[in-house]
Design a protein around this nucleic acid. Structure first.
Lengths: 216, 216, 216, 216
DNA sequence: GATGAATGAGCATTCATTCAT
DNA sequence: TATGAATGAATGCTCATTCAT
């Protein structure tokens, strides 16, 4: 993936741009996690990234760009992972479960980044916000594809809602960690949520699986 | 409910404090919705509320207090509504559905407030954040009570997760309005989500309602 | 002494004015001592004095007036005491010593007030400052009278300098308390300073030590 | 002397820090002299110093730091001058006189600075105040050394008091200029005060005037 | 390309003072 | 007379951004 043209840099060397921006993103995630976007200064990001404030501004135009780069980075990683799933799945219910579980795992890995993104999008320009929403839409679309592939008998709007539910349940694992992670591990969480998902949408193939014994 | 002593005011007239703070909250919600907490200045809040900056600071100590008052106000209203539900319900499944639906309605009414709260809690002091989390915990606990009352055969952790799912699904109606509200009305959303909820947790009492025709 | 017309009040009852202002002065001295004039708010003075901010402003026009009243109060007390001395002394050297010692005692009593006054005069209006300087001048003049009465052979300028030295040495007992009061009591301090004073000005009667040739 | 680490700066170039701070001190002294510390705004200091408010704050953290730098600067100059005296004097009475006179000359040069310092120390933090008192203590100690070197037969406490008297008499030349400088020049003032000092402490060599029985 | 000193717009907060009750 | 709510000018301080070296 080439770096999006949304954030221009005055540096010519494309490779250097990528290196420096990755340093910036890493530094920014660390700091935004601790103090939030607004309470983090550009100087702090530069320092944490290992270069001067002057250098920082060679690779971005405005502070907001840093946030945008972070958001972009997150979606890139999420989409990458989801694409792998979609492309390899052939449509069975197990594969749906595997896909959702894999997404939950990713959300576990990227808790901090996701929380940052959701808490700070408001700070982006309208334009950048639209870009992010569009990415979020693309993510939902992937889940819709996955659901379409792996289920039958669901109406479009049902698929839409389920895709949203999956997405949000992945995110809430990070958002509500202070509550959920007292009771669940990511595995037990993923298991129970996918079970509710399948049952809720009445997706269990065979017969009487909605008898009491089904759970767990 | 008297206003909590968490935010001291230098004005002695308790009633006046309540009036002015409600003006402030209303103004703040409007502005925070438009521009976020950080980009809203205290002067703007004062002006929107209809009094001077000096007067604003007679009723709060720090800008953060405004945000806290907003959060507190939201929880007060949510808890109030939930309490009514809990207290009047006697335990049938219809009442669970009614409770959840009522909560979704409330979340529809308070979309802006809820979005603000979730996007800006990070800006609160640690202490205030803890207060908010505690309130959120109390809300979850109410849903757990409701579930306990209206279901059987669910393990503690299942009830916990379901309570969280309900809560988050209510909130996401506001958060993801740009996506969900293209497809659903609050009623159709509530209906489908509660259906998934009941089915997911295997709560339909008897018979054929989980046949294909059940959906919708 | 009638209260000086320098600080007008909107209250008619002269007696009440005196009472309230004395409350104010007492409160102000306490607070200025602790935090200085600038860091003390008018509200704090009012509260400490036992009435409301509104009432405070019935008895003064500006915050500065409080400081002025304090200064005025101090001089009134100092002058009062010095007058007693001057009026009763008949001119012997013992009486000079007694007068100076008595002044030192007073400075010991009024340490806080004196320190406040000297540290904060700068905050007064030019006009008020002149009034204070004039009072200080009057005080010096009293010491000059005392010296004149009790000594012989001193030139005008010598008397002037000695009067200033006495005055300042009284004040420094308060100013430099952190240093002087580790080594001296007010009594031992007074004794040693008056001794230096008399010797320095060559005022011991008996013996040859006051031979005219000594002075440079 | 490197500038003390008490006031950190975010500028790395040590030399530049010294230059800018000297500009600040000069500007501050001028303004504080005119209007006092509290009535002088940081913007005014910056403007007078010839740079922007932003730049000012690159070299200090808080307004108080400016005052501290002024105090520190004064003591540095005073101590420097006193050290020269102490180091070169070998112990004769003439040299004591020369030392004191030189100090008086310095106090004449630094009248404004000294007055500012004494009027505004109260505005410093407790910590900074202690630093200043400690410097003042060091100054007294130097005078004690000088007295010890140049006199005989004086008790410790006498030396202590005399050192304080010298110090304060130097300072009062600035404080009471409105009164003293009508009558004296710094030279005539120095001459008369040193005379009183020597006589007062009974230090004239010739003749019997220092007979032990005189004191007390 | 990298640096970091300089800039100043912008904002939260304070507090003396007024005035209607 | 006494009260205290309302006011808004004033000010300390921050921090994104620029640009000369």
């Amino acid at each position: 993936m080439t770096r999006p043209r949304h954030v221009p840099s005055s540096i010519k060397d494309e490779q250097l741009v990528t290196i420096r921006r990755n340093q910036m993103i890493k530094a920014a995630v660390k700091l935004f996690k601790e103090k939030g976007f607004h309470k983090t200064t550009t100087r702090e990001v530069a320092k944490e990234a290992g270069f001067s404030i002057g250098t920082l501004y060679e690779y971005i135009r405005k502070k907001e760009d840093i946030l945008f780069l972070v958001c972009d980075y997150i979606y890139e990683r999420v989409m990458e992972r989801l694409h792998v799933m979609i492309d390899t799945e052939s449509g069975s219910q197990e594969e749906l479960v595997r896909g959702v579980t894999s997404y939950f795992q990713l959300m576990d890995d990227m808790q901090d980044e996701v929380v940052i993104m959701y808490q700070e999008v408001k700070s982006l320009s309208r334009q950048a916000q639209e870009y992010v929403l569009q990415k979020e839409g693309a993510m939902i679309a992937l889940f819709e594809q996955l659901l379409e592939k792996c289920t039958t008998g669901l109406r479009k709007e049902e698929i839409h809602l389920l895709a949203n539910n999956i997405t949000v349940q992945g995110q809430m694992w990070g958002f509500r960690r202070w509550m959920l992670q007292k009771t669940f591990t990511i595995d037990s969480y993923a298991k129970l949520q996918t079970q509710y998902l399948l049952q809720g949408a009445n997706l269990f193939h065979e017969g009487g699986q909605s008898s009491g014994t089904v759970r767990i």
